[in-house]
Amino acid sequence: MTANRTVHITGMEMKETINQFEQDCRLNGTRKAVHSLISEAFLIWMDALEQASVENDEPWRVGVTRTECSLDRDTVIRITVGMGEMLSIRDAFLISAIVDEQRASREFLMDFAERPKQSINAQRLEQLLSDSFRDPLARPDMKRCDQAINMLFDIIDMIPKTYRAQPFAVISYIMWWMGQEGAMAAAISALAIDDQCSLAAIVCSAVERHIGPAWTSET
């Protein structure tokens, strides 16, 4: 999936969507507002990840051609605003890249994005993260991860710099999970924009301490 990199989204467009989301939260509640904001964009994202997983039969390699599909302007805005406004939305996109749909269905991830404080959702997400970190057999689907990273870089190319922190942070985590050296650079890029970005700080700390997921044998 690619975005039209010749299209540049303005800060005004971002602010309009943020204001609409905040108003929707006040009028209809957070759950309905989140669903309205990202449900369609999330399906587009998930479809692209699944296509990357199942359609590319050749062994994964750096630079492999990714599944092509168009990320339109509205989808990019909604993904970016969602990640910036609610960490549960950001985490849903992150988990979707590192965990396959058999273990983390799109229905569960959307429900988590909408209701992160629901105990069953919070416990399930924590378990998924723990398993992916501690289980040496939980190896990344490189094609799926690569597709997510490329889509996020495409998004970053389209949006104003001030909104790039969370996409960079998600890239840094996925790269760390994959054992790629670019994880630190992506995390630093996120922190340069928002020095309070906790996900990027976590990745920086893990890389500096040579801590990695169990499959990399660094833990």
Rank of each mutant, 00 (worst) to 15 (best):
M1Y: 10
M1E: 03
N4L: 05
V7K: 08
H8S: 11
M12A: 15
M12E: 14
I18L: 03
E22C: 08
D24L: 10
C25Q: 15
N28C: 07
T30A: 04
R31N: 05
L37P: 00
E40H: 09
A41P: 04
F42Y: 13
F42V: 02
W45K: 03
D47N: 13
E50M: 06
A52P: 03
V54Q: 10
T65S: 15
T67A: 10
T67R: 05
C69R: 12
R73S: 09
D74S: 14
T75C: 11
I77T: 04
I79E: 00
T80L: 03
E85D: 07
S88L: 08
L94Q: 12
L94A: 09
A97N: 01
V99S: 02
Q102H: 12
A104H: 03
S105V: 12
M110Y: 07
P116F: 01
S119A: 14
L128S: 02
L129Y: 13
S130A: 10
D131W: 08
R139E: 14
R139I: 15
D141C: 07
M142T: 06
Q147T: 05
N150L: 12
F153A: 07
F153P: 00
F153D: 13
D157T: 08
M158E: 07
M158H: 01
K161T: 15
T162K: 07
Y163W: 15
G182E: 03
A186N: 06
L191M: 13
C204G: 02
S205K: 13
H210L: 06
